[in-house]
Design a protein around this nucleic acid. Sequence first.
DNA 1: GTCTATATTCTGATAGAC
DNA 2: GTCTATCAGAATATAGAC
Lengths: 223, 223
Amino acid sequence: MSLPLSYKLILMAKAKTKKIVVEETSTEEKIKEAAKKLFTRKGFAATRTRDIAEEAGINLALLNYYFRSKQKLFDIIMLENFKQFIQGITVKVYDETATIEEKIEKIATAYIDFLTLHPDLPLFILNELRGNPSDIAEKINEEVAPMRLHLMKQLQNASNAGKIPAIDPFHFVANVIGLTVFPFVAKPILQRVTSVGDDRFQTLMQERKKLVPLWIKAMLAVK
Amino acid sequence: MSLPLSYKLILMAKAKTKKIVVEETSTEEKIKEAAKKLFTRKGFAATRTRDIAEEAGINLALLNYYFRSKQKLFDIIMLENFKQFIQGITVKVYDETATIEEKIEKIATAYIDFLTLHPDLPLFILNELRGNPSDIAEKINEEVAPMRLHLMKQLQNASNAGKIPAIDPFHFVANVIGLTVFPFVAKPILQRVTSVGDDRFQTLMQERKKLVPLWIKAMLAVK
DNA sequence: GTCTATATTCTGATAGAC
DNA sequence: GTCTATCAGAATATAGAC
């Protein structure tokens, strides 16, 4: 039974305080795992609580016993997913010792590795973020705000120092994230259009870890 | 009451055979318009037939009278949306007189204009395409197959002639479409991260009509 | 073709036994 | 904590009058 690392760590931490051996996954965790799997794959509206219960190997009533409602369970998963999604990028952005170009390489590599493991995540986030305007938007803002300031400042500094030409931060972010994330978001349609199978897709994504930074560098030299 | 151009043309064609004056939108068209609006914005599962009926200004029973079921109505909208989405690109790709670089510019411009008018379309397609594996996949293949051959051939020729370096068609397509479409797909999150309002977003998208072709050209020179 | 009223199915949530 | 059984409401679809 494979678990997200974060869960395992929590379990181990709990276990440490009582026993030495890591115990079986708790019912609550099993439900969360099942919910994350289905919500992430099919979205809120298309996922039925019955399916989550079945996937978790427990009864429907138990789901409500632990989480009170479908919406509350979803909110938890949504927030976890979003944090997980930007967590990969956060550490890299804050690295004071890295230049912009080094950061791009680290971010692209980390993200492609991450998305290879969680290919459904970005589409889920883009999707569920569109319907809920101000619901969880605030929490997201809190997570993102300091990162924005940091990145803007570094871009401005690099531009002032003449290291890179002035580029609008929006274009910069859209391009880095777009080149990295889009192939995963559009995977089904891209594979169809280009006749690329699953194995070849994986290989191409590995290639992009090297290519995206080179491409971005070349783009920064434009105009 | 603003109608999609295609509808207007159909109506005008019909009208030509009988009367001179273009008549009011038919009930069937009104339902389809309402369905397209809601399905595209919220997806299949989150859209209720009641809402479609209300949006169309008719009764719920009438929806089933015309389309028999929610699923059948959705399938029609889905196919129309998809055709509309790739239709913009199709003409440009087949233009025998244009070089690869000219095509990129035409495609980027046409797509950004199109997406400005229909910002919800790409996310809708990416989304609903993920759940339905082989359902409408075949019809999509039929639409896309000849375009794939044409594009691959031109890329190969340009590469052989030494005009551009060899690049995997997958990377090429992913990059062009990614740089063009991704900002619209990720609009809410990108706006949040970069503190960009709606007006500024529109301006930036207009900028990209010029920038994307330049960027792609610069990327093609890499390595 | 269009409506009102109703049937039918689905789904989230709860009551209550164990 | 976990289960079975069931309720209440929602959502799709149909019957039948006009």
